[in-house]
């Protein structure tokens, strides 16, 4: 027992560093991903010719491949195209891959939320003489954004969990710090991964609880399947 305490004590600064990196990466992922996903979702819900099917393909491509494979594509294949500005270091590749992956889920949520706003709202706005953009901006989106909250918290949990995969391209987040810690304490692999799991749990569980609370509060059904 004392030995475990000692290990935990000597690993604490590294795990803390890894945790901060996990938080940073997941925050960048959710912010950039929400921005892209919001635009894609709004355009997709408006039945714009060419763009709507194009974004549909974008979502299917991202949904149809594992995040690990997408990460490899951004990290190995893009630099191989020979274009100079696509030669990213691992951190940039990680940020971009995570943001784009996130955007596919956000887009679906935004689109279903827009469709969940009753038609009468939009029709009444039309009757008042609002243009399409005005209807969207003043009437539909303010109501739709509220509906996305439960699902968005679910997406956030999913992103936090996905950041663990970034360890394979050497981002020094929590899981990677655990792998490094094992080099120092090779006999306590199980304890170290247990510790890592506990940190993830402490980070994700409150968000999951919030998601459930928001779901009951807002009363919206989960508009998109996650995980």
């Amino acid at each position: 027992m004392e030995r475990y305490l000692l290990i935990a004590q000597s690993l604490a600064p590294f795990l803390w560093k890894g945790f901060i990196e996990t938080v940073t990466v997941s925050l960048v992922g959710i912010l950039a991903g929400s921005l892209i996903g919001f635009l894609v979702g709004v355009v997709r819900s408006q039945r714009v010719p060419i763009l709507t099917p194009l974004f549909g393909l974008y979502i299917h491509l991202l949904r149809g491949t594992p995040f690990l494979v997408q990460l490899y594509l951004f990290y190995f294949v893009l630099p191989n195209t020979g274009v100079e500005w696509l030669k990213w270091e691992s951190r940039t590749a990680a940020f971009v891959a995570l943001s784009i992956y996130t955007s596919s889920y956000v887009a679906e949520i935004v689109m279903s939320a827009i469709e969940a706003v009753p038609r009468g709202q939009s029709e009444a706005a039309t009757a008042l003489g609002m243009t399409r953009i005005e209807r969207l901006w003043h009437v539909v989106l303010p109501q739709a954004v509220k509906l996305t909250i439960p699902s968005m918290s679910g997406v956030y949990v999913m992103i936090i969990k996905s950041t663990a995969i970034l360890s394979v391209i050497g981002i020094s987040e929590l899981t990677r710090q655990g792998e490094l810690a094992i080099l120092r304490f090779p006999r306590d692999i199980l304890f170290i991964y247990g510790l890592i799991a506990a940190v993830y749990f402490a980070y994700c569980y409150p968000v999951l609880r919030f998601a459930r609370w928001a779901e009951q509060r807002i009363g919206a059904a989960r508009v998109a399947r996650l995980d």
Partner: peptide
Amino acid sequence: IAFIRATPLLVQIYLVYYGLPA
């Protein structure tokens, strides 16, 4: 269920991979 949903699959795989033999 809460544990599975709040921890990454990769960490769960490591836990099983190293934990089960132990």
